[in-house]
Computed example of a mutant assay.
Amino acid sequence: MINKIFNELEKFKIVDWGMLYLGCKGLPIGTLSPNNVSDFACEQLAIIELNDASFISVSELSFCTEINDEVIDIISKLCDLNNVDLTLSKKKWVVFSIKEFMNHLPEDSLYGPLELNNFWNEWGEPNNSQNVIQGVNNSMTPNEYYSDKNYLKIISDHNLWIKKELNELGI
């Protein structure tokens, strides 16, 4: 799934070295392939100057054939050189991952909220997530929480959140 989401992110031209760094270290949706790293590095080579401090590192990554500690270290250094905001990079991954995840939610009002809870739990429950857990900071009974009406509200709230986050990303 990570490669599908990465391709979607590339369409919007919002991929950065931080996203590669996080994707190579591994995310709940998987680990990026060496081809993703190589392709991105080749794209970057086409736009950076020959005398750019990152040129040699980017050149090395253009021949990436495996994700290992050396590759991750090079990408980490490129993040530092380019002052990449890893929080923003992670936000992009989360937004596009939940957007894709929403397309595959179960229709069942019992399993759907549970799947969403699992999603947010795997991503570390970002402070601004739309995750609502029955009985946590609310007085919803299990019958209320797992009702069809509440599930539709949860889906609607998530879709609004995605739209807001995409807007903040300039998409």
Score class of each variant (00 low, 15 high):
105 L>K: 11
131 N>C: 09
96 F>R: 10
111 Y>M: 08
108 D>N: 15
117 N>R: 00
117 N>A: 07
125 E>H: 04
127 N>A: 12
98 I>Y: 11
127 N>Q: 13
116 L>K: 05
114 L>W: 00
131 N>E: 07
116 L>W: 02
129 S>D: 14
126 P>E: 04
106 P>G: 07
132 V>E: 12
104 H>W: 13
102 M>E: 15
117 N>P: 00
103 N>S: 15
115 E>V: 01
96 F>P: 10
131 N>T: 03
100 E>M: 06
118 N>M: 11
116 L>R: 02
101 F>H: 10
110 L>D: 11
112 G>Y: 01
103 N>H: 07
121 N>F: 06
97 S>G: 10
112 G>A: 12
112 G>D: 02
128 N>T: 02
129 S>P: 00
129 S>T: 07
119 F>C: 14
119 F>K: 12
127 N>V: 12
122 E>V: 04
121 N>C: 11
115 E>Y: 04
130 Q>N: 09
97 S>H: 03
100 E>T: 07
109 S>P: 15
130 Q>G: 10
97 S>K: 04
118 N>L: 09
128 N>A: 03
122 E>N: 13
130 Q>I: 01
96 F>Q: 08
118 N>S: 12
121 N>K: 07
123 W>S: 12
102 M>V: 15
116 L>Q: 09
102 M>F: 13
109 S>F: 00
119 F>P: 15
120 W>M: 05
122 E>L: 11
105 L>D: 11
108 D>V: 06
127 N>I: 08
116 L>G: 01
106 P>Q: 06
113 P>F: 03
126 P>K: 01
110 L>V: 14
117 N>M: 09
113 P>S: 03
97 S>Y: 07
122 E>F: 10
127 N>P: 10
106 P>W: 01
120 W>Q: 04
123 W>A: 09
98 I>F: 13
96 F>L: 14
129 S>G: 04
129 S>K: 02
100 E>C: 02
118 N>I: 09
98 I>R: 11
132 V>C: 03
126 P>D: 09
114 L>H: 04
111 Y>I: 03
117 N>I: 09
100 E>A: 11
109 S>C: 10
128 N>C: 00
131 N>W: 00
131 N>H: 00
126 P>F: 02
103 N>K: 15
114 L>M: 14
106 P>S: 11
114 L>V: 10
117 N>Y: 07
132 V>T: 03
129 S>I: 00
109 S>T: 01
103 N>E: 15
121 N>H: 10
118 N>D: 15
96 F>S: 08
118 N>E: 14
105 L>W: 08
100 E>D: 14
98 I>K: 12
108 D>M: 07
127 N>K: 14
122 E>H: 12
109 S>V: 01
113 P>N: 04
112 G>N: 02
100 E>F: 06
124 G>K: 04
99 K>S: 15
112 G>R: 06
111 Y>W: 05
121 N>M: 08
104 H>V: 06
120 W>V: 05
111 Y>D: 08
121 N>L: 08
100 E>W: 04
124 G>T: 07
132 V>I: 09
126 P>Q: 03
103 N>Q: 15
128 N>L: 01
132 V>N: 05
114 L>D: 07
113 P>Y: 06
103 N>V: 09
